[in-house]
Amino acid sequence: MTITKDALVTLNYRLTNSEGELLNPDQEPLIYLHGGHGHIFKKVEEALEGKSVGDSICITLSPAEAFGEYDEELVVEEPLTELPDELFVGMEIDGYMEESPDDVIIYTVREIHDDRALLDGNHPMAGETLTFEGTIEDIQEISEEAIREILEHHHHH
């Protein structure tokens, strides 16, 4: 069987940055629904199309093809009075930009100074060129109902 639209694919993979550092050392295999559903990077999905169990790929992803360019506008300073009491560096908190209050942004606390904190809404790997190496472990055909369930579940996250 080869990978086609709506196949459930299991991949063992490694993600490394441009310095060759392994970014997912404890990663379980990735299981995703193939076919443009946004469950995996588009360029990786395109490389997997038509492949079979045991096949491998190695793809370099530019920041735009992976987690996006680093956006300085997503770095904000907030008064501690507006933030949770138990704040610590590295903590992730939900927030939003005033222009789009329906879009939740996960901010990471980068620094805490006196009465203010520096929050970064960029993905931790934003701005990184990444290498995705994967080996296909399994390909399954699944029912229309299972596809719907996966898409509904993914949509709510």
Rank of each mutant, 00 (worst) to 15 (best):
E145W: 09
I59K: 05
D85K: 12
G121N: 05
G127W: 03
H113Y: 13
T135S: 10
N24Q: 05
A146I: 09
Y13C: 07
P25L: 01
E69D: 15
L119A: 02
E45T: 07
H153G: 12
V89H: 01
S62I: 05
V76S: 03
P29N: 09
G127Y: 08
L130T: 06
E65S: 02
G95E: 00
Q140P: 01
A117L: 04
M91P: 08
V44L: 03
N24T: 10
S56I: 04
L23R: 09
N17D: 15
E28W: 00
T129R: 10
I105R: 01
K43M: 08
I3Y: 04
L30P: 00
G90A: 04
G134S: 10
A117F: 04
I112D: 04
T108Q: 12
E144N: 14
V53A: 06
V75Y: 00
L22P: 04
G36M: 07
I57R: 00
F88I: 08
I106R: 08
I40S: 09
H37T: 03
V75F: 03
E19I: 03
G127R: 02
I93T: 00
I106Y: 04
S62L: 10
V9I: 11
E149C: 09
G20I: 02
Y96P: 01
A126T: 03
G121E: 05
